[in-house]
Structure formats: C-alpha cells, structure tokens
Design a protein around this nucleic acid. Sequence first.
RNA 1: GCUCUCGUAGUUCAAUGGACAGAACAAAUCUCUUCUAAGGAUUUAAUGUAGGUUCGAUUCCUACCGAGAGCACCA
Length: 540
Amino acid sequence: MVKEEVKKIIQKALEKMGAEASEALVEVPKEKTHGDYSSNVALALSKKLGKNPIEVAQEIVAKIGEQKNIEKIEVAGPGFINFYLSREFFVGELKKINKNFGKNVSLKNKKIIIEYTDPNILKEFHIGHLMSNAIGESISRLIEFGGAKVKRTTWQSDVGLGIAKAVYGKMRNSLYSWQDAYVFGTKSYEESEANKKEIVMLNKKIFERSDKAVNKLYDEGKKWSLKYFDAIYKKLGTHFDYLIFESEAVDLAKKIVQEGLKNGVFQTGENGAIIFKGEKFGLHTRVFINSEGLPTYEAKELGLAKIKYGKYKYDKSVIITGNDINEYFKVLLCAMKEMLPELEAKTKHIGHGNMRLPEGKMSSRSGTAMTAESLIEKVKELVVEKTKDRALDKNVDEQIAIGAIKYSILKQSIGSDIIYDFEKSISFEGDSGPYLQYSYARATSVLRKATVKPLLAGAPEIGSLEKLLTHFPKIVAKATDEYEPHYIVLYLTELAREFNNYYAHHTIADSPYRVALTQAFSIIMKNGLWLLGIEAPEKM
RNA sequence: GCUCUCGUAGUUCAAUGGACAGAACAAAUCUCUUCUAAGGAUUUAAUGUAGGUUCGAUUCCUACCGAGAGCACCA
C-alpha cells in the first residue's frame, strides 16, 4: 500500500462520480491523528462542482467503499479525506524491513562519481573541509544505498597562488608550520607589490618545476599533506577511490580553452587573458586563462570533467563544494555546455553552507579557522570525561565524538550556513548524535537480554512506533532525490524519541512481539546512522 | 550600484501551497527495588514590514527593510 495506490483508489471513485479526475494529491499528514494518508481532492474540486467540500469528500468516500489494507476512511477538517491503514499492512511492512533493511533500488547499477572535501595541500584541514566531507560522505552513502556504484573523488589543489604563498612563508622561516607559513605568505602578498611579484614568480617556478630547492620544499610539503589527510579520512570513516590533483588538469584545461577560443566560445580579454563572456547567458564574465598563460580554477574544472570521465564512464557526476563558489559554477557549467555538452548534462553541482563563527566567517587565509583535528580532540576530551565511569572501549569515545560533530553538521539542510557553536555541538542531550547512538545501544542491550524469540504477530495495536518505522524507505528516497541528508537526521531523531518513549512504558524482553519490534528499530537505526556516516556502538 | 541566497520562539534548526507553524537548547515541576536516567512525562514562547495570487500562503509574485556571498586574472 503506497501513495500511488491510494491515488488510484481516489481516481476510480472520481470517475464513478463523473467528476474530472484532476490530480488527486495524497500526502502523509504531519499530525498523527489525521490518518496514515490524507487527500485534499475534495477541497480542490469543491469550487468546480459548486458544492461544499465536506459533501464532496463524503461522496467520494461513499464511492470508494471497502478496500484491501484500508481499515477506515474518514472526512475531517475543512474536507480532507483521511485513510487509516490496517494492522496486517503494517506488520507486513515491518517484516519486509527486517528482511531488506529498508533499501531501495532506485539507482540500481547506475555509475555515479562524487567529488567532495577538496582540501588544498600545504594547508590545514579545517572544519570547513570536515563539513564538506561529512556531507559528501553521507550523500555518497545515500546513493550507494539506492544501489548505485559510487566512486568517491577528491580534487586537491597542488598548484596555484595559495600553494605559492605557503611555500614562500616556509622559505622565509623554516620553523613555520605549513599553516603559519600560509598565513604569513598571504599577509606578505597583500603587504607590498614586491612581495606580490616574488610570490607570482614562485608560483610559476613551482608550476614549471624549474628550481631544485623549491621543488624539494614543495615535494616535502605535498607528502606531509597527503599523509595528514589520510589520517583524518580514516578517523572520519571516509575514503577516496580517486585522488586527482589540480596540476593534472592543467594541460587539458589549456587545450579545451584554446579550442573554444577558435570556436568563438571564449574571447581574448585584457592583457591577453582568455575569458568567457557570461553576460549573454545572464551571468558574468570570468577569466579562464590568466595573463600569465595559466588556467584558472574554472578552466581546470573543464579538464577535470574529462579526467573523471576517462577514469569512470559515469552516468552522473556530483560535485559538492562550498556555496561561495555557486556563481562561478554557473559560469563554468555554462562554458562546459558549449565545450563538453554531453558531460555538462551529467553534472550536478551542490553548494553547501559554510561554517561560521558567531563573530563572522572563519578563514584559513587569516588563520581564524579551527582545524578538524583540534575540534575532534576537544570533543573527544569531553566525551572521555563523561564516560569515565562506564569502562568503554577507547574507539567508542571517538565514535561518539565524531557522531556528535557529524550530527550537528548534517541536521540542517545543506545550503545554509552553520553558525558554529562549540558548546552546542558537544551537547549530548536532545537533538544530538549521541542521543541516537544511545537509543541504539539501549535497543541492542534489550535484545541481548531478551528471554523470548522475536515474532511479528499478535500485535496488540499498531502504535506510532510501528507506523514511523515503516516510513524509513520513503524518507531515504526523499533524502536521496534531493541530496539532503538532514531528512534522515530529522527522521532518526523522531524515531529515537518514539522508541525511548516506548521503552519507558513497556517491558520488552519477555514479549515476542516487542522484541521483534525492537529488532526492527535497531535495524533501521543502524542503517540510518550508517547513511549519516555515524558509527553505531553496541554499548555506551 | 548589479546578481544570487536568506529573514520562523530568547538561541540553533524543521515544515512537496493545506488541518492547531514542529523539535531541541535554555527555565520550571515530576520520574530509577523494571530490560542502559546520555532516558521518560508536563508547562511557557515565533513566521521582518506592506500589498497581491489562491477555497487556503512560512512556502508563489511585487515593493520595502535587514543579513550574507559574488561581481576579470585566488579557489
């Protein structure tokens, strides 16, 4: 019994009435007292028919009559038709979930490549990267859950002014960490024209690999960076199938833009730069090859699309970045449409919000960003303090800390900024990762102590826990379609609350039905947490 | 100045054009001889302003006010 079936039943009734079977809207009502499905057809039709909506609704209900899986139908409010599903239906759904874990097959065998995180070598991995990583990993898992074959990709900047600034700082003072060197380099760059010139020259040297001393410093830095990133990915429970470096895209980028220059897609601008005029598409002009002859980010992104397709013949390419480059992406996708139309058609860009401190934007340029590592460590310290009497595994503390952080990132829709409140993100009460983990640990603990075999039969009555459990596949589908993990977070939080309520009011261990229900809950919670990239410890 | 995004309880976030705008935090009260109290129960509080479209608007349109991002060689 799904939404579509309810729709069909209504359509049939409307045909019987001789009414125009316009689109019958069916939805799951927010309010539990409004049935399992609800339709507003009567409201929409009443004006056309010139009748009171309640009368129309009653007429429709009469025409529908008895239906399989539907226990009762009633007219409520201004003329809504509410459908209540039968007990057999819910028990059947729960059995299905226990069997297939609520997976769907909407993306079966699709090849999808997902790019996210994108840290820059020689710079710290700050909490903005952590945010991108948590979002990207969750979206990857949602897509995998739908049956797709996912390749995770991260694109790392290893050339460009930012890198040159860091190398410059390190050359000036070898005692600087790479982070400090970068901040110093950025400051120097802005301080004087002479410094600026020097850094631009250095950038060129790095790019051409023409200076041995510079190469050595640069190579050391790159090696350090990759090792450092690897350790963080491991901690976060993510991995990448492809690490692509910006330098790899340079030649391809140039080639594509040169070709486009001949075709008239690109133009020559001031100082010999090659530009794309976005104005005729309602966008703005952007530089693709700068006056030094080096491709910019926009051009390299064109090359990157080709590189990715060369590695993996994808059906879809998803790119996840901060939303501050949303406008650039529009321009570059517009250019891509001209140059690589078949790849552009498969590309989807998602811009997520930024981590902000209450006092403003945090930036690695000015050195105000907190590193991912120090955040994890700080949260972990608090977890350890809280769990010291519980004799838990060491990695459980880390799982809880990372769960708390990921939850606070994923709980809101990804487009908006997160005002980062340290105190709040480590709170373990209410809306939080540990709340979900705790509910799961409780459920598994009861299951361990169960004195009877689980059996999904003889349900005394179908309560809100049962109903909510059966919504899982639908919620997953929505989150996947919209690339919005926060639907999963909201759902799991509500589910955990429902379970904790059930737990507080029923003794589970000695009832076959309740044990089976708890089992269904634990399966869904575990899978739901997996979708968020949050570990589900059995004890905490 | 132009373009884009966004204004919801004291705070941080929800709400395919639908029923009484949901949670959490903060505050108050109650609740462990029962399977994990990091739990459960109860109480208070909000759609920036002015119009419009609609049976019905937090949602769509217009103007204004306010915030953020972007607007030629950084990403």
